[in-house]
């Protein structure tokens, strides 16, 4: 554990709490992509199957349970409790274009050819693109509630912080790198660059998040 990794995980935790806070206080899931949230559940479930086989630490176990449970709860809020506030007609990204290639990549790139390891690879590839339906929705509507942008910023910060974490680990753990996680992580972070640009130049200056027409 190093400071970048810890801050990254806390940022990830914060992003989920911000999203829950947004849904509960506005009593609405307007502006949130159900597809992205459903992809995150898929990511967490396929990646964390090892909670039954490998004990890493209490920290690791607790975070995994929290990520699975909280994201399932968000799906429940969107699909049941605040269903009328979710508009599927603007959440139109075709997730099969993500699931198919990620499954193929996982079959090609993995560390061991076992069910658990291939699913782990799948989850890494899928996480790297799971935000696309959300970003696509943002692009379509051209604007976002400020709290939604804070959610995305925290999520992006989590990914960005994993990069110095890997660099730190490379130098402190005798040249160890995880090529699958690093490659997918770089792609994932790159997807946030456009968003970050608008976030830093507008939202943090007190303006509304609006994309140029």
């Amino acid at each position: 554990m190093n400071i970048f990794r810890l801050l990254g995980d806390l940022s990830h935790l914060a992003s989920i709490l911000i999203l829950l806070h947004k849904i509960q206080t506005t009593r609405s899931c307007r502006g949130i992509s159900f597809k992205t949230q459903a992809l995150y559940v898929t990511v967490f479930v396929t990646r964390y199957l090892d909670i039954f086989t490998d004990w890493v630490s209490l920290y690791n176990f607790t975070m995994k349970i929290f990520f699975i449970a909280s994201t399932c709860y968000i799906l429940y809020l969107m699909k049941m409790k605040y269903r009328p506030t979710h508009d599927p007609s603007i959440d139109t990204f075709r997730v099969e274009y993500l699931l198919g290639p990620c499954a193929l990549l996982a079959l090609l790139f993995h560390y061991r050819f076992t069910v658990l390891e291939v699913l782990w690879s799948f989850s890494i590839f899928l996480e790297s693109v799971a935000i696309l339906p959300q970003l696509f929705m943002l692009q379509r509507t051209g604007e976002a509630e400020t709290i939604t942008t804070h959610y995305l910023a925290a999520l992006g910060a989590y990914r960005a912080l994993y990069i110095p974490n890997w660099i730190y680990r490379y130098f402190t753990e005798s040249g160890q790198i995880d090529p699958i996680a690093v490659t997918a992580g770089l792609v994932q972070t790159a997807l946030y660059l456009d968003f970050f640009y608008v976030y830093f130049t507008k939202v943090l200056q007190g303006q509304k998040f609006e994309l140029p027409a």
Binding site: D50, D54, Y111
Partner: peptide, 10 residues
């Protein structure tokens, strides 16, 4: 040996 990939990250 690929035991370096212990998946200790979230």
């Amino acid at each position: 040996d690929d035991s370096g990939h212990g998946h200790d990250e979230l």
